[in-house]
């Protein structure tokens, strides 16, 4: 087995480990941490960068040799060469001193640096993958094969996490909507209960008024009938009296009874007026 074949056997073993790890990643942070840890076992680089451009955003992450800067997703500038990659989709291979990395350039200690760049296109998403290698950390054309595999499995996982996040957000929204519906339902049932109690209250008030009115009319009838029955009785017995007796006894009692009847009727009229006024006031206030 040649040295070259041996190297690739080792590399593929490293890749299969990487694949196993990446499949377990639970979020984007973990995904990047795995990328950073395993990248150095797959190929040589001084600096590795992935720019992701999807429907609504451009973000990127950088992996430095010896981890001089934390690896995380950032919304930052698109480098000139990335603009070209996005525009033309032609792979890039050129000399570089890494000056576009500004303050990180010196720490990388690039010696005869080469800038490599590739454009990947997936559904709705474009990826610009670039790396700087140098004389001490050479990246070779044969490594592109493993890089392709790496980007594929990275992006598959990335997309999966993104969809999961979206689903989670939608679920949250749905839960919120459900909560709102529930609270509105509760409010509606409260309103209905309130209406019911108002109706019950008014019905009770009406029933009570009806009872009061019935009682008043019963009392009225009785109060009026009492003197009236005397008048009728006096007329009944009148035939047994002489004319003189009629004047002194019957007429006198008739007069008293008729006055009592008049008093009773006046009382009835007054009470009815009061009852009607009371009822109409209650109607206005409720």
């Amino acid at each position: 087995m040649s040295l070259y074949e041996n190297k690739y056997r080792v590399t593929y073993e490293a890749f299969s480990k990487f694949s196993a790890k990446i499949s377990k990643a639970d979020n984007k942070k973990e995904l990047l941490a795995i990328m950073e840890t395993h990248l150095k076992y797959l190929f040589n680089y001084k600096y590795f960068r992935v720019l992701i451009k999807d429907e609504d955003s451009i973000k990127s992450f950088n992996i430095f040799q010896n981890s001089i800067c934390p690896t995380e997703f950032i919304l930052d500038v698109v480098f000139d060469y990335e603009e070209k990659l996005l525009a033309k989709n032609i792979p890039l291979y050129q000399n570089t001193d890494g000056s576009f990395l500004k303050e990180y350039q010196e720490q990388l200690q690039i010696c005869e640096g080469k800038l490599w760049g590739w454009h990947f296109e997936y559904q709705n998403t474009e990826l610009c993958v670039s790396l700087i290698s140098d004389k001490n950390k050479p990246f070779i054309v044969k490594d592109i094969e493993i890089l392709n595999l790496l980007i594929d499995s990275f992006f598959t996982k990335y997309q999966q996490l993104k969809l999961r996040n979206r689903l989670h957000k939608k679920n949250l929204n749905l839960e919120n909507a459900l909560r709102i519906i529930k609270s509105q339902k509760l409010q509606i049932s409260k309103i209905v209960d309130n209406q019911k109690s108002i109706i019950k209250k008014r019905t009770n008030a009406l029933q009570q008024s009806n009872t009061e009115l019935a009682e008043i009319s019963r009392l009225n009838a009785h109060n009026a009938r009492e003197p009236l029955s005397r008048i009728l009785g006096l007329i009944e017995i009148a035939e047994f009296y002489t004319e003189k007796e009629l004047k002194t006894t019957i007429l006198k009692n008739l007069k008293i009874s008729a006055q009592d009847l008049d008093k009773a009727l006046k009382g009835i009229i007054e009470k009815s007026a009061q009852a009607i006024e009371k009822l109409s006031n209650e109607d206005l206030s409720s």
Binding site: E226, S229, R230, G233, L234, E236, I237, F240, N253, I256, S257
Partner: peptide
Amino acid sequence: DQQIANFIMKKVIST
């Protein structure tokens, strides 16, 4: 309680 009522009844019974 009505004297007149008693008066009427007395007369009715007396007849």
